[in-house]
Amino acid sequence: MRKYLLIAGCVLLTLNLFAQIGLKSGDIAPKFTAVDNMGKTLSLKSLLKSHKAVVLFFYRGQWCPYCNKQIKELQDSLQLLTGKGAYVVGVTPETSENINKTIDKTHASFSIIQDKGYTIMKAYQVNYTVDAELLGKLKNYGVDLEKNNGNTDHVLPVPATYVIDQSGKITYVHFDKDYTKRASVKSIMAAL
């Protein structure tokens, strides 16, 4: 009986990821306030007062090569993005120690927020709980989510990107459950 309950639970968790749709272009972006990796308090409301747009993206962790590639591309294009008045913010469930590893790998100089309680991830509807099968695969690759995120929740974000304009409206969305597909800098630039 326990075995069947575990299997049913894994199926429901997997279906939870596939049922997710995230926020849409035209939606009002949920407000948030958080402290970034540099100890700076960021609020979406304040950022939108001082910038034309906010590029908000969610990534899984320093262990993810696709996340690191996206962060490097954003860093390499940061002057272009800020030149258009954008403020770039990354959101992750990983610990501050692992955020520092991400920065070491990618040389990211923009704000990165550790979303401990998944408040921002939940508001933007990108959070999901990793099922047992994926958790096992990650462990086989040497990824320890519990150590990386500092908890036993096994929650990750769909790697999504949102561009939010000064009115607080989402003007661009990249939400793809395929973690290998990310928003291109070209698409983000076109939305600014």
Rank of each mutant, 00 (worst) to 15 (best):
125 Q>W: 00
125 Q>F: 00
125 Q>V: 02
125 Q>N: 13
125 Q>M: 06
126 V>F: 05
127 N>E: 15
127 N>D: 15
127 N>T: 10
127 N>P: 01
127 N>R: 13
127 N>V: 12
128 Y>C: 04
129 T>S: 13
129 T>G: 06
129 T>V: 15
130 V>E: 10
130 V>D: 08
130 V>N: 08
131 D>C: 01
131 D>S: 10
131 D>L: 04
131 D>R: 01
131 D>E: 12
132 A>P: 05
132 A>H: 03
132 A>R: 05
132 A>I: 12
132 A>F: 12
133 E>R: 02
133 E>K: 05
134 L>Q: 14
134 L>G: 01
134 L>P: 00
134 L>C: 01
134 L>H: 09
135 L>H: 05
136 G>Y: 12
136 G>M: 13
136 G>P: 02
136 G>C: 11
136 G>N: 14
136 G>R: 12
136 G>Q: 14
137 K>E: 13
137 K>R: 13
137 K>Y: 08
138 L>K: 02
138 L>F: 14
138 L>G: 05
139 K>C: 02
139 K>T: 11
140 N>P: 01
140 N>Y: 04
140 N>I: 00
140 N>K: 14
141 Y>C: 05
141 Y>R: 15
141 Y>S: 14
141 Y>H: 14
142 G>S: 02
142 G>C: 03
142 G>D: 02
142 G>N: 02
143 V>S: 11
143 V>R: 10
143 V>H: 11
143 V>Y: 11
143 V>F: 09
144 D>F: 03
144 D>S: 06
144 D>E: 00
144 D>M: 01
145 L>H: 09
145 L>T: 10
146 E>F: 02
146 E>C: 01
146 E>K: 14
147 K>A: 13
147 K>C: 00
148 N>D: 15
148 N>A: 15
148 N>S: 15
148 N>R: 07
149 N>K: 07
149 N>E: 11
149 N>Q: 12
149 N>W: 08
150 G>S: 09
150 G>Q: 08
150 G>L: 09
150 G>Y: 06
151 N>P: 01
151 N>V: 03
151 N>W: 03
151 N>H: 01
152 T>C: 00
152 T>P: 00
152 T>W: 00
152 T>M: 00
152 T>L: 04
152 T>K: 07
152 T>Y: 00
153 D>V: 04
153 D>K: 14
153 D>T: 05
153 D>M: 11
154 H>D: 05
154 H>T: 00
155 V>N: 10
155 V>H: 06
155 V>D: 09
155 V>M: 11
155 V>F: 06
156 L>D: 03
156 L>M: 04
156 L>K: 02
156 L>F: 05
156 L>V: 03
156 L>Q: 05
156 L>E: 06
157 P>C: 10
157 P>V: 07
157 P>S: 07
157 P>M: 10
157 P>K: 08
158 V>M: 11
158 V>P: 12
158 V>S: 12
159 P>D: 08
159 P>F: 06
160 A>R: 02
160 A>H: 04
160 A>D: 06
161 T>F: 10
161 T>G: 10
162 Y>V: 07
162 Y>D: 07
162 Y>S: 07
162 Y>K: 09
162 Y>I: 08
162 Y>M: 07
162 Y>A: 10
163 V>I: 13
163 V>L: 07
164 I>E: 05
164 I>T: 05
164 I>H: 06
165 D>P: 00
165 D>K: 02
165 D>M: 00
165 D>N: 15
165 D>T: 00
